[in-house]
């Protein structure tokens, strides 16, 4: 599944330019997801000895359903189905997407997976905090870095004490 969803990642990025056009990739992504399930289910026994059903049948069924739904979605898209972006509390669906802000926020979300094992939670928090704040238009980068580091450190101290396994403070330095 991860490789499959990674390809959706690229498609999501492309979608921003084409969201007004017909998003064929959306149907394709659902079909692909279904095919992954079908492939996974194919490798498992469908029946079981006790007259019931085996571990594979449900997987196959879900995969088949996703493929069918993906096809239906593709048909809908071909017929000109419209997709209206949802309204959120600080965002309006009718607003045009700002690619730079999106990429900055996405970078912020990627930071933890990349740095948490070497830099530890406080520094990771500092980086992703500053990046999210930047993506929302904050211009005080220095202050954001400091706030992120303080928040990360306080959270690390508090939650480690509460029993969470948050790793070392700064693993790369062995602290």
């Amino acid at each position: 599944m991860p490789s499959e969803e990674l390809s959706r990642e690229g498609e999501a990025a492309r979608a921003r330019e084409t969201s007004s056009a017909r998003p064929w990739w959306l149907g394709a992504a659902v079909i692909a997801l279904g095919l992954v399930c079908l492939y996974g289910g194919y490798q498992l026994p469908q029946g079981a000895r006790h007259a019931g059903i085996g571990p594979g049948l449900f997987v196959t069924a879900v995969g088949a359903a996703l493929v069918i739904l993906g096809l239906l979605l593709t048909v809908q898209i071909a017929r000109g189905e419209t997709f209206e972006a949802q309204d959120a509390e600080d965002a309006s669906g009718s607003e045009k997407a700002d690619p730079a802000a999106f990429v900055t926020a996405l970078a912020a979300a990627c930071v933890p997976a990349l740095t948490i094992e070497t830099l530890g939670l406080p520094l990771t928090a500092m980086l992703s905090f500053a990046l999210v704040a930047r993506s929302f238009g904050s211009r005080r980068i220095g202050l954001d870095l400091v706030s992120g580091a303080v928040l990360g450190t306080l959270a690390w101290l508090l939650f480690s004490r509460l029993g969470l396994q948050l790793g070392d403070f700064l693993p790369v330095a062995g602290i």
């Binding site: 928090a125 992703s128 905090f129 904050s138 954001d144 928040l151 396994q165 948050l166």
Partner: peptide
């Protein structure tokens, strides 16, 4: 301020996920 509010939410989301499993 909104920028810092959403930034804080991401930090807590990271802690919520990392703190349970410790899995990258």
């Amino acid at each position: 301020p909104r920028p810092q509010l959403y930034a804080g939410i991401l930090v807590f989301a990271t802690i919520g996920i990392w703190g349970v499993s410790g899995s990258v």
